[in-house]
């Protein structure tokens, strides 16, 4: 199978993720969109690894996964604490850090 197809799929997923981050207000959904983008990148990495015939890309993918996992933990914790104080999971309600 043509490896380019994986890349196209990855690009599509990335775009969907990007749009999701930009247009959705719900923090959880934004979060999931970010995960989508990260995994799109992972897919690209693995694809390139395959094309190149080296393992670098796969190793990088693992790195990304680890970082993503850590990020999810912290991110969800933040969202949870915001939800507790604000009674809302909308990212637009959290705009105290400005100017």
């Amino acid at each position: 199978m043509n490896p380019a197809n994986y890349l196209i799929l990855a690009a599509l997923l990335f775009t969907i993720g990007t749009v999701g981050v930009l247009v959705r207000r719900n923090a959880i959904v934004v979060f999931m969109s970010i995960e989508l983008m990260l995994n799109a990148v992972n897919l690209t990495l693995v694809t390139f690894s395959r094309i190149q015939g080296t393992l670098d890309g796969q190793i990088m993918a693992f790195f990304v996964m680890v970082v993503a996992a850590a990020e999810v933990v912290i991110g969800l914790a933040i969202i949870l604490s915001i939800f507790r104080t604000r009674r809302s999971a909308s990212v637009d309600d959290v705009n105290l850090l400005k100017y």
């Binding site: 934004v30 959290v94 100017y99």
Partner: peptide, 17 residues
Amino acid sequence: MRRLQTGFVRSYALSML
């Protein structure tokens, strides 16, 4: 310039993009 810092996460994301 400070005014650009609106506090809306999504606008930051857009500028990043």
